[in-house]
Design a binder for these strands. Structure first.
Lengths: 226, 226
DNA sequence: TAAGAATGTAAAATGTTTTCAAAAACACCG
DNA sequence: CGGTGTTTTTGAAAACATTTTACATTCTTA
């Protein structure tokens, strides 16, 4: 796991680096916004810790620039007490979490852990693009290509597909799909799910009769197999 | 088994720690909500005991935050007489049980035992994987591999197997299986259980004739031996 | 060891779940 | 308001699962 730490305060760099390395991270540091930004753009990291107050370019700008350039690495911002934090989260510059200085190392660890856990769920799984067989799903554009031809999916079909993909490998009960994709508490007849699954299969499977990806697990529900 | 005890009252900490340690738990304590929360986030525990009235951050908030961060450790809340408990359970902050002070140690033990048993059902086992002999059971995928080859089990067979595994070591009566695996209203003839057990044995045992894992306890029921 | 009770299991009978096409209901837009 | 595309409901056949039955076997106890 690689962390980019962008921070100008010498003491904090040392403390944090120690802590992070002891937790098994490989740490790269930058001491101003510009170099931080260019590291983040030229290498890949699993996490970026970004101070708000930085020489040359402040953390908020770095954060915005990164997001604008589609860098989706989780970002944890560090703010001094008093700096208004709504700028970070409220204005949606794209940071994932923040910590107000001074902070406990434990708190830091906890937030890092949470961030990374979340990022496993969202980034690797859902953001970007996912391919199976001759099908490519682009989650950002909400587009699906099959053999490079665009397939039209309704919003619901797309959400269903996304949910299945995000949970690929697991058995997913119809109830769960109804909850998570439909948002219902269980009202529509359960056949609804089946019908939509059938449509997805029609549109995406090589041979809808013998589905390769969207499989049924009799008595349980469905399972996406990549 | 690790317990996190979040409690500010010195005397109670000592009493509880003693008791819990004598029951074989490893106890970690925190005396305010914030440190409790960060411990709970940065380490893993099998159980969290959380006082409602705490300095810095109250137990209800800690509980909500934990659940929001997908910490699924069972939580037992301690409330003073008079504190409205519907906040804990009624508002579904995610606690699993509560105890009103003052309480008997026996009562505490009983509730802990119940919680842990329940949690074995849901967490440790339902998530993850269980192995015996050449068989590996993956509860998330609802899949069973034997010698790395996939074995097809019906939903009922799978649930039965899961129940047996979750209660491994115990003698389980046929009635219990009917209740727990088949469901309350199910009233099939008692031989049904035997048939399904036989099928599981056929599919999973090395030598179904002399079952090694799913054993008969004549006159009582069955027992899973790992 | 024999009698009775409990258990094992193959196969028939019964029951349930899933698929899928078609129809009905709905929602949105101009 | 009607047209268009989407979603839900329905129903019936097909796929699959469970229960029962009936007899064999094993176990317990005296």
């Amino acid at each position: 796991m690689r962390v980019l730490l962008v921070e100008d305060e010498r003491g904090l760099i040392l403390t944090l680096t120690d802590r992070l390395e002891s937790e098994g991270f490989e740490v790269k540091t930058a001491s101003d916004g510009e170099s931080g930004l260019s590291f983040a753009l030229s290498e890949t990291f699993d996490l970026i810790i970004l101070d708000v107050m930085l020489p040359k370019k402040n953390g908020l700008d770095v954060c915005r620039d990164l997001r604008q350039k589609n860098v989706e690495t989780p970002i944890l911002m560090l703010t001094a007490k008093g700096e208004t934090i709504d700028k970070v989260l409220g204005l949606k510059l794209g940071a994932d979490d923040y910590l107000t200085k001074p902070f406990e190392m434990l708190e830091l660890s906890a937030r890092i852990e949470a961030l990374l856990r979340r990022s496993v769920n969202t980034h690797q799984n859902a953001v970007g693009t996912f391919k199976f067989g001759s099908v490519a799903v682009d989650f950002r554009r909400a587009e699906v290509l099959k053999e490079n031809r665009q397939i039209e999916l309704s919003a619901l079909e797309f959400k269903l597909l996304q949910y299945l993909i995000e949970h690929r490998g697991e058995v997913i009960k119809r109830d769960e799909l109804l909850d998570e994709v439909w948002g219902y508490d269980a009202m529509p007849s359960t056949r609804t799910v089946d019908v939509h699954v059938a449509w997805l299969r029609q549109k995406l499977e090589e041979n809808p009769k013998y589905p390769q990806y969207i499989q049924t697990v009799h008595g349980f529900g469905y399972k996406f197999n990549s």
